[in-house]
Amino acid sequence: MTDCDDDNPPDGFVLSSGRGPYTSHNGPFFHKVTEKGFVHGVRVRQRHCNSRGITHGGMLMAFADGLLGTAVWRATQTIALTVRMNSDFLSAARPGEWLEGTAEVTRATRSVAFCEASLYVGPRPVLKASGVFKLMARHKSQN
């Protein structure tokens, strides 16, 4: 499938807004919230790909980093910065495919959070990631 102007997200996904310039440039990204948590998604385009015609590893890692950060925010209501992220590339995502993922915090202390993310195309796993995030206590939500 070639690059298209229609991102055609699956039912239930809405356009994500309020992202920084880097993430907005890489998108558009979509999200939905379910009883089990949240899911982010993106329609893979040619601009997301490397010279082999598959999604660039850096794009996958940036997408996973956003998932991990979202999980930390949802669990702690605190802005956090990535300290470390490990990624395992499991398969490729190609132009036209719907790539989605989710993440969860596995442990949080007062100063750091540990989390895991999974990216997939349909039932096919594409990337697994784990991360450590520094919680920025002065930016904790007052809500």
Score class of each variant (00 low, 15 high):
82 T>S: 11
50 N>H: 03
51 S>F: 09
65 D>P: 03
113 A>C: 09
47 R>S: 07
49 C>L: 05
18 G>C: 09
122 G>K: 12
125 P>G: 12
45 R>L: 13
120 Y>W: 14
44 V>M: 14
48 H>N: 06
35 E>C: 05
18 G>Y: 10
63 F>S: 03
63 F>D: 05
31 H>S: 11
23 T>W: 09
60 L>Q: 09
68 L>S: 09
129 A>K: 01
124 R>A: 08
112 V>P: 11
25 H>Q: 09
69 G>E: 09
114 F>V: 06
36 K>W: 01
45 R>H: 10
75 A>W: 06
93 A>C: 08
103 A>V: 10
55 T>S: 10
20 G>Y: 13
23 T>I: 14
96 G>H: 04
15 L>P: 02
106 T>W: 05
81 L>T: 15
74 R>L: 10
33 V>A: 13
34 T>K: 09
69 G>K: 12
86 N>C: 03
24 S>D: 11
10 P>S: 00
56 H>K: 00
65 D>L: 07
112 V>N: 14
33 V>E: 15
27 G>I: 00
84 R>Y: 09
20 G>Q: 13
56 H>I: 00
69 G>T: 07
25 H>V: 02
130 S>G: 13
61 M>Y: 08
113 A>H: 04
77 Q>A: 12
115 C>K: 11
10 P>D: 04
46 Q>M: 14
70 T>P: 14
127 L>K: 03
51 S>M: 05
34 T>G: 13
113 A>P: 11
36 K>G: 08
81 L>F: 15
91 S>R: 10
50 N>E: 13
16 S>Y: 05
58 G>W: 06
25 H>D: 02
86 N>L: 12
63 F>C: 04
34 T>M: 14
94 R>T: 09
124 R>I: 04
102 T>D: 10
104 E>C: 07
75 A>G: 11
48 H>W: 10
70 T>M: 15
30 F>K: 14
26 N>I: 10
19 R>T: 01
116 E>W: 02
12 G>D: 08
23 T>D: 05
85 M>V: 15
27 G>M: 03
92 A>Y: 05
39 V>F: 14
73 W>G: 02
72 V>G: 02
92 A>W: 08
126 V>T: 02
48 H>V: 08
47 R>C: 08
75 A>N: 12
19 R>E: 06
23 T>F: 12
63 F>Y: 06
65 D>I: 14
84 R>S: 15
30 F>D: 07
22 Y>D: 00
61 M>W: 06
60 L>W: 00
103 A>W: 10
27 G>A: 00
49 C>I: 03
51 S>I: 14
32 K>N: 04
